[in-house]
Amino acid sequence: MSGICTGRVVVVTGAGRGLGRAHALAFAAEGARVVVNDLGVGLDGTPGSDSPADGVVDEIRAVGGHAVAHAGDIATTEGAASLIRVALETYGRLDTLVNNAGFLRDRMLVNLDESDWDAVVRVHLKGHFLPLRHAAAHWRQETRAGRTPEARVVNTSSGAGLLGSVGQGNYSAAKAGILALTLVAAAELGRYGVQVNAIAPAARTRMTQETFAQTMAAPETGFDAMAPENVSPLVVWLGSAASAGVTGRVFETEGGRITLMEGWRPGPTAAGEQRRRPEEAGDAVRHLMKEAQPPGAVYGTR
């Protein structure tokens, strides 16, 4: 390993399993001291009986790394505040925040209960905002004290947030919100030495095990394109000081592929100097659609 994160303190939420676990192990392997957060809930957010964060901490310590567990609910003010406090009280600093925690409650919109909407938006979107808000307050304080950090935030969106996904209206809306939050945070926090980026990963985890169940390692290379460990190198690099100058970006990543996503930009425009009648607005839209690139297909419609 290169030791690209030697000396850095990294917080990873939802790090007990899947992508979060892979990120925590990868950061530790590169010299970081890691705060491993996981509430230990089921796939749908219901309380679980185990403590997966402790297991990941044990894995890191077993190979000589440094890690500490945090089992608080990061979608609450106290849980998020205590997460940042654990990093500062244990290791004396905070350099990188990786927001990853989440779960699913998939339903078609006509069957989606309000409670399922609230729960998914809460863990994904609020669960990104609150740790970010408390970490940012610390970094602002550091900057005002003359210690401007090389701080990094990596948020976790999804292809569902980029394109939408049938049966996942709650999840898609939350993941799209994370993209906008990333752009705002990158613009606001740069003055405090903070870079904020987002990833939209595809990997085999509890949340996607049915989707990718049949994807196995290629026999000729042994490369498992859907292994969560494939996503972690990008996250580690974005979370390191080596990523200086990269902020406000969104990366789609799967296997060995990394795509820099380009978001909403002005496309064809119909100029006008006076109010249109409805049929005139419709004619303009039809003309614009002929000139525009077709949108990407919503997941589940292909």
Results as ranks from 00 to 15, higher is better:
Gly239Glu: 12
Val250Leu: 14
Val231His: 01
Glu252Gln: 14
Thr221Gly: 03
Glu252Met: 15
Met261Leu: 13
Pro233Gly: 06
Ala241Tyr: 09
Asn230Ser: 08
Gly245Phe: 01
Thr259Asp: 04
Arg277Leu: 15
Gly248Phe: 04
Gly222Pro: 10
Leu234His: 01
Arg276Thr: 13
Glu273Lys: 07
Thr259Ala: 12
Met261Pro: 00
Leu260Asp: 00
Ser243Val: 10
Trp264Pro: 14
Arg265Leu: 03
Arg276Phe: 14
Ser232Gly: 05
Glu229Ser: 13
Glu252Asn: 11
Glu220Ser: 04
Ser240Glu: 07
Ala271Glu: 11
Leu234Trp: 01
Leu238Pro: 00
Pro266Ala: 10
Gly272Pro: 07
Glu262His: 06
Thr259Met: 08
Ala227Arg: 11
Pro228Val: 10
Ala244Cys: 12
Val250Asn: 00
Ala271Asn: 07
Thr259Val: 15
Gly248Arg: 06
Met226Asn: 03
Gly245Pro: 01
Ser232Lys: 10
Glu229Ile: 10
Thr259Gln: 06
Ala218Phe: 08
Ala227His: 13
Gly267Ile: 13
Ser240Gly: 05
Ala270Ile: 05
Phe223Tyr: 09
Gly248Glu: 11
Val235Gly: 04
Ala217Thr: 11
Arg276Asn: 10
Gly255Phe: 00
Phe223Asp: 06
Val231Trp: 00
Met226Ile: 13
Ala241Trp: 09
Arg276Met: 14
Gly239Asp: 13
Gly263Ser: 02
Glu252Ala: 15
Glu273Arg: 09
Glu220Phe: 04
Met261Val: 07
Gly272Glu: 14
Ala225Asp: 08
Gly267Gln: 12
Phe251Ala: 00
Met216Gln: 15
Ala270Trp: 13
Gly222Cys: 11
Pro219Asn: 04
Arg275Asn: 10
Arg276Ala: 12
Arg276Tyr: 13
Ala218Tyr: 06
Gly222Ser: 08
Leu260Val: 03
Thr221Ser: 08
Val231Glu: 01
Met226Trp: 01
Glu220Gly: 07
Ser240Lys: 05
